[in-house]
C-alpha cells in the first residue's frame, strides 16, 4: 500500500478517537440538554441537577482525547499506521455511539425525574451503565495501543 495512504490512515486513527468522541458528546449533550431546557419550563425547582445530568455524555470526548494522546506516543510508521487506525477509529465509534445513546438515556431520566423527583438517582442508572461500556472501550484501547507494532 502507498506509504502516504498509510500515513493518512495512521493520522486518522490518532485523531479519530477525539473527533468521533466529540461528535458523540455533541449529540448526547444536545439531546439531554434540550430535554433539561424543556423540563425547566415545567418545574419550579431542581434546575441544577437537570443540567448536571445533561452534561453526562461529555465524558466520551475526554476518553477520546486520552486515547489520542496515547496513540500519539507511538511513532507513526508504515508498520504502526494500520494498528493506530484500527484502535483509534474503532474506539472512536464506540465512544460516539455510547455518548449519543447516553444522551437519550439522560433525556429520559430528566423527563422521568421531572415528574417523580424521588426516582432521580435510579433513573440515571441506565445512563451510568452506558457510560460503563464507554469505559470498557476506552480502557481496552489503551491496553491494545501498547501492543501496536512500531
Amino acid at each position: 500500500m502507498d506509504e502516504s495512504l498509510l500515513m493518512i490512515l495512521g493520522w486518522t486513527g490518532i485523531y479519530g478517537a477525539t473527533a468521533l468522541g466529540a461528535v458523540g458528546s455533541i449529540i448526547g449533550c444536545s439531546r439531554a440538554g434540550q430535554a433539561a431546557c424543556g423540563a425547566m419550563l415545567d418545574v419550579e425547582s431542581g434546575y441544577g441537577r437537570l443540567v448536571g445530568l445533561s452534561a453526562l455524555p461529555s465524558s466520551q470526548i475526554i476518553y477520546g482525547i486520552v486515547v489520542t494522546m496515547t496513540l500519539r506516543g507511538n511513532p507513526l510508521t508504515a508498520q504502526s499506521a494500520p494498528g493506530l487506525f484500527a484502535v483509534g477509529v474503532l474506539c472512536g465509534i464506540a465512544l460516539l455511539f455510547s455518548a449519543a445513546f447516553q444522551g437519550a438515556c439522560c433525556a429520559s431520566a430528566i423527563h422521568a425525574s421531572k415528574n417523580k423527583p424521588e426516582v432521580f438517582g435510579l433513573s440515571a442508572a441506565p445512563a451510568a451503565i452506558v457510560e460503563g461500556f464507554a469505559v470498557f472501550a476506552f480502557i481496552f484501547a489503551l491496553v491494545v495501543a501498547g501492543g501496536i507494532p512500531q
Binding site: 434540550q34 430535554a35 433539561a36 431546557c37 424543556g38 415545567d42 433525556a107 423527563h111
Partner: peptide, 13 residues
C-alpha cells in the same frame, strides 16, 4: 424529527 425540549416541557399524562 426529535422534540426533546417540547416533550420534556409537557407534564406527565
Amino acid at each position: 424529527r426529535s422534540y426533546y425540549t417540547l416533550i420534556a416541557s409537557l407534564p406527565h399524562l
